[in-house]
Write a protein that binds this DNA or RNA. Structure first.
Lengths: 233, 233
DNA sequence: CAGTGGTCTAGACCACACA
DNA sequence: GTGTGGTCTAGACCACTGC
């Protein structure tokens, strides 16, 4: 009494992971069925099920009906990447956050952008350019377009003190988002804003969000040299 | 009969998401308790629980005992990033994969690397440089160090036909992994391997894996210009 | 203290995929 | 067909935490 309070699905996960690590169950091995494991661990099948389901979601094992459960050969483990607001990111490492609005204009988008945002012929967008500083050093240059048709009150919003990101997050929901990262050489404009040499390698993040097939916003985030996107998994 | 087969946790997720989207439950709203929702949907509490637990894992809602469940104000949604093997990535978009070993040597690591890999004084590493081609164009240049103390049979492995990544994945387990991405200007060596101009912006991925506090391997992956790391969430 | 979520159980039926 | 995982139920007890 007291020692074996209850068998938790966590215990089972740990036990299974341990056996995979110490090669009792090497890659490709067929694991015992749920009923068998439930007997071994002295718990209900549902408990084993939850443990194995989570391991499967984490990409450690592969489950198929009738075929059974196998240890994944190539653990295509999913990295979980938290994408924070710039402000939180900067304050997170103890620097002072400062924001500045650089440019603001309602425009008819050029063709390339219209395609990318899948806009209709007459639809206009609000174009914004902002700078985010960490301890007075430029940290991120934000080049953003917002679909006025989807966010009709955005032209009235005041972005002189707060960035559009925080405004959008609190005000406009979205259903899908896509993000991609790449490296580019700084154009003269970007170089000027970020205080780097033209042509210098800059880390670029692009993000688009949709609200049921309609583009809400598309943004390019240019990070200062030396920026690293980090993740553990 | 036939219409209402069974209320699935998926149905409940959809229903809740719909109400969040149409602002019935705006950001910060306190949702009804599990029992109440179970009654409304005509199902067991466990079913509602699973739906809400998954929404919570996805970062849509925030749950606290006694306090209840609320719609997240700032959906710091977690992006799930699948990091595939290069081969799979290249073949995935229909290109032919080709591999070449460029360099291979057992060395005593320089100081910087020893710190980064947290190696002991006498420990040696296997240094490998490889190229991964997509349709005969250089796609990725791989610069890797493997801890021989942790992977004792790596010096005997043959990496002339297959890359070390695939070998390691199939052979050596790990408990923790860290990955980071950045942009750098191509050094002359990297430029030569990737067929780009020196100084051109290159996308760099760094990855380190550990087996219980001991570094297994550290690798720098330099991608061809124009490479984009994509993710949906 | 009391309410809400977190988890476990025992049993059941179903869906899929392989033989 | 038949075995394996996928899911639901009804009920129970527990753990945390806000009041």
């Amino acid at each position: 009494m007291g020692a074996d309070d209850k068998t938790s699905y966590r215990d089972i996960k740990k036990a299974i992971l341990a056996r995979i690590r110490d090669r009792t169950w090497g890659p490709g091995t067929l694991l015992p069925g749920e009923v068998e494991l439930a007997e071994e661990f002295g718990c209900a099948r549902a408990t084993v099920n939850r443990a194995m389901r989570e391991l499967s979601e984490e990409g450690i094992i592969d489950r198929k009906r009738k075929a059974g459960t196998r240890v994944n050969l190539a653990p295509v483990r999913l990295a979980k990447l938290a994408i924070p607001l710039v402000r939180a990111e900067i304050e997170g490492f103890g620097a002072a956050y400062r924001y500045a609005l650089v440019h603001r204009q309602v425009i008819t988008p050029p063709d390339g952008l219209r395609d990318r945002m899948r806009l209709g012929a007459g639809e206009k967008v609000l174009h914004l350019q902002c700078l985010h500083y960490a301890d007075d050093a430029p940290f991120q240059f934000e080049d953003r377009w917002i679909n006025i048709a989807v966010v009709p009150d955005v032209p009235e919003a005041d972005f002189s003190a707060t960035g559009p990101n925080e405004w959008l997050v609190a005000k406009v929901p979205y259903t899908d988002a896509e993000m991609q990262f790449s490296a580019i050489g700084a154009t003269p404009e970007i170089a000027r804003h970020l205080s780097v040499a033209p042509g210098e390698a800059v880390f670029l993040g692009e993000r688009a969000t949709w609200l049921a097939d309609r583009t809400v916003t598309y943004v390019r985030l240019y990070f200062h040299s030396g920026y690293k996107l980090r993740m553990t998994y």
